[in-house]
Amino acid sequence: MATGGRRGAAAAPLLVAVAALLLGAAGHLYPGEVCPGMDIRNNLTRLHELENCSVIEGHLQILLMFKTRPEDFRDLSFPKLIMITDYLLLFRVYGLESLKDLFPNLTVIRGSRLFFNYALVIFEMVHLKELGLYNLMNITRGSVRIEKNNELCYLATIDWSRILDSVEDNYIVLNKDDNEECGDICPGTAKGKTNCPATVINGQFVERCWTHSHCQKVCPTICKSHGCTAEGLCCHSECLGNCSQPDDPTKCVACRNFYLDGRCVETCPPPYYHFQDWRCVNFSFCQDLHHKCKNSRRQGCHQYVIHNNKCIPECPSGYTMNSSNLLCTPCLGPCPKVCHLLEGEKTIDSVTSAQELRGCTVINGSLIINIRGGNNLAAELEANLGLIEEISGYLKIRRSYALVSLSFFRKLRLIRGETLEIGNYSFYALDNQNLRQLWDWSKHNLTITQGKLFFHYNPKLCLSEIHKMEEVSGTKGRQERNDIALKTNGDQASCENELLKFSYIRTSFDKI
């Protein structure tokens, strides 16, 4: 039985969820670079991206490699990797027998973001014989899940209580170790020597080791999670996991709180800001991140802002960003909400898709409305799209047979046209069989910064309504002859009103 693990408890099935942008060198404390989270699957090609990484700022997932063999891993080693800020997950990587050479110096898994409450997941690794993470000293947050690894031993010899604050939620089941077939031998045991430290858990006094050649490092209890030197002297209180010299914040392997210019500090002093819960960055760093993602459509890219001495992905609820200094300031009234469309555009074809934009005031991208039916549609669209004030790209209304009016965009005031449909149009209306009105132009103002209007096959939309939009939106004169079809717009509506004058002759039985 794995020490510190839980057996036999019912657990939810383990679901495996399925960018080499360097964020800056980590400095003297770390020998390499800070790398983003990685999802490495199918083959070993991307694994080489770990070569210079000291910190993975995010998670590391290595999974679904069915053609790899043990010899493929023999020359692979990433000794610079010290810390993973989120979680480490391995799933069905064939041929991998140990992690001792792959990650010989991995010391800390912070667990800032977890995989279903777990910071370390080893699942269905069919050839893994031992973990071998002999320098792993601290899992700051989260638990361990090690399950269905039929060859995995050296679990009962690990004292997880020396690595985690609590072992109650560890789930370590259905491994070879369960069948008591392992016969784990710690260093020196074969020669009758006791080389590794022994600890007591559940009444068992057991030597602690990761492999037959690597003991588990056990520091004096007084050192807590700070770690200790090879001689057993406690590291500085700002260290986490390990250090090369005692009581020196510049000799830590990793930091308990924050890293700044080669030393570990309790908090980031001005003019620095907390970033990702582990390091200090200056304003320029946060500003660069903001600008890199301002026009990016890459998933996970955030326009970072500053709030409460932190550089964070977005302002919290009730705050909006001051564009001059990136500071989050309290909103006066309802907060603006910028919604970034991942692929640059979004099609609204149902109430469900409209709900995804609920509360958005600025759309960074283009909207395509293609709704053919739905219950209580006008009210639903207004509830979900009615706060949109600005669209950076274009607005396209296409084959939306259920629409009679666009009044559900009740606050839309600006279409920038930074991206144009077919390279020309910022407003595009095609084949809307029941569209009769755009907006009530006596109450609604709309500016279209650039781009043209396109109207074709809107049989109940009168040309007068379209011409009014040209005047109000500032697009009059931009359109070419064929942009607004004269014969297919309003051709099934009563669009022309003329005053009919009647004269009559009164007659009676005795007068003409």
Rank of each mutant, 00 (worst) to 15 (best):
Q61M: 06
C186Q: 01
H226E: 05
E266K: 04
A198M: 07
G188H: 09
G32Q: 09
F275H: 06
V265F: 08
L44D: 08
N105W: 02
T189R: 07
L128G: 01
C301F: 05
D277Q: 14
T250F: 10
T320I: 10
T267F: 09
E130F: 06
K67T: 02
M65Q: 06
E130M: 11
P249Q: 12
Y319F: 14
H212V: 07
S213P: 02
E231P: 06
V305L: 07
L106F: 02
R113V: 00
S225I: 14
F285T: 08
H291E: 11
C328N: 02
L332G: 15
C264F: 00
Y272K: 04
L164C: 10
L29T: 14
D39G: 02
E238W: 06
N257L: 03
R74F: 10
K191Y: 08
G241I: 02
G318A: 08
S244P: 06
L90H: 00
R162H: 08
I109L: 14
F283E: 09
L164T: 13
C239S: 00
T157M: 01
L44Y: 07
H291T: 06
A190P: 09
C335G: 02
Y304R: 06
E314L: 06
C223M: 02
T189K: 06
E124P: 00
S323N: 09
G262L: 05
T211L: 04
P36M: 03
C328T: 07
R263I: 10
R110K: 07
Y94L: 14
P271R: 14
P336G: 05
F78T: 01
R263K: 08
P31T: 08
H236N: 11
M125Y: 00
F283I: 10
K80Y: 15
N257K: 04
N325E: 14
P70K: 15
R110C: 08
H302Y: 12
L240D: 06
E180S: 13
D159M: 03
M65H: 08
F66A: 00
T85K: 07
L233K: 11
H291V: 08
Q245N: 13
D277N: 15
K67Y: 07
N150A: 10
F66L: 00
Y273K: 06
C293S: 07
V305C: 10
T107F: 05
F66H: 03
H290I: 03
G58L: 00
V200I: 11
N295P: 00
N135A: 08
Q245R: 12
K67Q: 00
E33P: 15
A230F: 07
P246T: 05
G142H: 01
I139R: 00
P70Q: 13
C186N: 00
C215N: 06
L136H: 00
K67M: 05
T68G: 14
L155A: 02
W278Q: 05
R297C: 15
C196P: 09
D75L: 10
F78L: 07
R113C: 05
P104H: 00
F78E: 00
S77I: 09
N175P: 07
I62E: 00
L289I: 15
R298G: 11
N138V: 02
E238F: 07
L174R: 15
G142D: 06
C286Q: 01
N138S: 09
S225F: 13
F275A: 02
R297A: 08
C264P: 00
Y273E: 01
D178G: 10
K224L: 14
F115R: 01
N42I: 00
A156I: 10
N117K: 01
C239V: 04
C280G: 02
D169E: 13
Y94R: 06
T157R: 10
C311L: 15
E97V: 14
F66R: 04
D159P: 04
L289C: 09
G227W: 05
H302I: 13
N175K: 13
S324A: 12
R279S: 04
S143W: 14
G132H: 00
Q276T: 12
C335T: 04
N149H: 00
Q299W: 06
L120A: 06
C243F: 01
E238P: 01
H214S: 04
Q276E: 06
R145C: 03
T157F: 02
V93S: 00
N309C: 03
I306G: 12
K294L: 06
C182W: 05
V173C: 14
M125T: 01
I163E: 00
Y273P: 03
T229S: 11
N325V: 06
M83H: 07
R162G: 07
T221A: 11
E71P: 12
C280W: 00
H226S: 10
Y259C: 14
T267P: 02
G203I: 01
E168G: 05
E207T: 07
L289M: 13
N135R: 10
D39P: 00
E147F: 01
N195S: 12
S213Q: 08
G142Q: 01
C182L: 04
P330W: 05
S161L: 09
G37D: 04
Y30C: 11
N295F: 13
H28I: 06
C315A: 09
S161A: 13
V55N: 08
S284R: 05
S77F: 11
I306L: 04
F103D: 00
L60H: 00
S296P: 05
N309G: 13
I139S: 01
H59S: 04
G188V: 05
C335N: 03
C235L: 01
V34L: 06
Q299I: 09
Q303I: 09
L50F: 06
L155Q: 04
G37R: 07
G300W: 05
G142R: 00
A230M: 10
L120C: 05
P246Q: 01
R298E: 03
I139V: 08
I122A: 06
